[in-house]
Design a protein around this nucleic acid. Structure first.
Length: 288
DNA sequence: AGACTAGCCAATTATGTCTA
DNA sequence: TAGACATAATTGGCTAGTCT
């Protein structure tokens, strides 16, 4: 049986003592498509290039700030002769106060915004303050850093056009508004952890319901059974990765959270009507 | 070598009923 | 609303073999 591919795990980048870490990177060569088991926010200080997130290509320049979840994959390509300098803040979901990430990310899986002028300077200063607090860490540093980071998060969420983040709460059209709060908690958890094994019992405990009752509520409110929902997330992730990378099918299957290739291919064929390789060959279209 | 298929079987999950 | 239980359906792991 094949081994699961190596991924960027939080355990290898985060200290045992803290749930966050700040890097200041200088990127001269392309960083190939990759994904993480932690959240990541980056702020571009200088340089230019391209940022490819989940297959979508964006111009990367000073002020560009992005927040990625464990469900996203990305690639950074500096322009020729350009060095991209950026602050890279990685953290575990529990680092910020409960509900904040879910609220900020509610409208789409990840966020991106380019700050300009004075705003960009303010965000850069906030990252600079975080850097000062980490070198060295002192008493109270984690709390100050958390505050600093949450401020950046909120400023960024407010700056996004038409996202509807305001004191009145989430927008009316959000399908999750119709769901029971317990089910919303489980849906949020699945959103960021579908690449890991999630037994029904774990999701039910997360939602605070008995497993059989949770199963019933989930299916009634979401419209499809729990396992079908998790598999759907995994298939979406794998199909995007198939079309936007050259990674082997095997690696993509494991990366999406499937335990075996057999199972991945079986579900994939059922959903898309062709094998993963055919899907890639046909660029997502119907097989010929 | 990597991708894919098929069959078998155990584990997990969905579902329904009863009860508190 | 939720626990206990029984049963049916589905999922997922394993193996072996073929195809590209």
């Amino acid at each position: 049986m094949k081994e699961a591919p190596e991924r960027l795990l939080g355990s290898s980048f985060l200290d045992l003592s803290s749930s966050f870490r700040l890097f200041r990177h200088e990127i001269r060569d392309p960083i190939e498509t990759h994904w993480h088991d932690f959240f990541e926010m980056a702020f571009v200080i200088s340089g230019s290039g391209w940022h490819v997130v989940n297959g979508e290509r964006f111009r990367l320049e000073r002020g560009m700030t992005f927040l990625l979840t464990t469900a996203d994959f990305h690639e950074i390509i500096p322009d020729e002769h350009s060095t991209i300098e950026l602050y890279d803040f990685i953290f575990e979901g529990g680092f910020v106060r409960p509900g904040l990430l879910e609220e900020v990310l509610r409208h789409r899986g990840w966020l991106q915004y380019t700050f300009a002028g004075e705003e960009a300077r303010e965000v850069e200063q906030a990252f600079e303050q975080i850097r000062k607090e980490t070198e060295p860490m002192r008493w109270g540093s984690p709390m100050l850093i958390q505050g600093c980071f949450e401020r950046i998060l909120i400023v960024m969420a407010r700056a996004l056009p038409g996202e509807g983040l305001n004191a009145a709460g989430p927008p009316r059209n959000d399908p999750k508004n119709k769901l029971h709060p317990s089910i919303v908690k489980a849906v949020d958890m699945i959103q960021y952890h579908f690449r890991e094994p999630i037994p029904l019992s774990t999701a039910a405990a997360y939602a605070g319901l008995a497993p059989n009752y949770f199963s019933e509520c989930f299916r009634k409110q979401v419209g499809i059974p729990f396992q079908a929902y998790v598999n759907d997330k995994r298939l979406q992730f794998s199909s995007r990765l198939l079309l936007s990378s050259d990674l082997p099918v095997t690696e993509i299957g494991f990366a999406a959270g499937f335990g075996t290739m057999t199972h991945f291919e079986r579900l994939f064929k059922r959903r898309y009507g062709c094998s993963p390789r055919q899907f890639r060959k046909n660029r997502g279209g119907a097989p010929v």
